[in-house]
C-alpha cells in the first residue's frame, strides 16, 4: 500500500514536472522538497507510526495557560 502510494506521488510529480515549460533548478528543488514532505507525511499516516505532532509553541501555550488559569482546555 505504502509503495503504491509513494509510486503515485512519484508519478504525479514526474507528470507535473514534465508539463512545465521551463525547469529552473531552484523551482525543481522547491517542488521536490515539498513533495517529499507530502510523501513523508503519507508514510507516517499510512504505516500508523505514532509520531507525536511537534508543538514548537508549547512554551507560549503554557504561559498563556498560566495567564488564563482555568481558561485553557
Amino acid at each position: 500500500m505504502i509503495i503504491l502510494l509513494v509510486l503515485g506521488y512519484v508519478v504525479v510529480g514526474a507528470f507535473e514536472l514534465y508539463m512545465w515549460s521551463d525547469r529552473p533548478w531552484k523551482k525543481v528543488l522547491a517542488y521536490l522538497c515539498t513533495l517529499a514532505l507530502a510523501v513523508t507525511l503519507t508514510v507516517i499516516v499510512v504505516s500508523s507510526w505514532q509520531i507525536p505532532v511537534p508543538q514548537p509553541l508549547r512554551l507560549l501555550e503554557n504561559w498563556v495557560k498560566e495567564l488564563w488559569a482555568g481558561g485553557g482546555q
Binding site: V12, F15, E16, M19, W20, S21
Partner: peptide
C-alpha cells in the same frame, strides 16, 4: 497549459 494539469490529475 499549466491549468490543464490539475484537471488531468483530478
Amino acid at each position: 497549459m499549466n491549468l490543464r494539469v490539475p484537471k488531468i490529475i483530478a
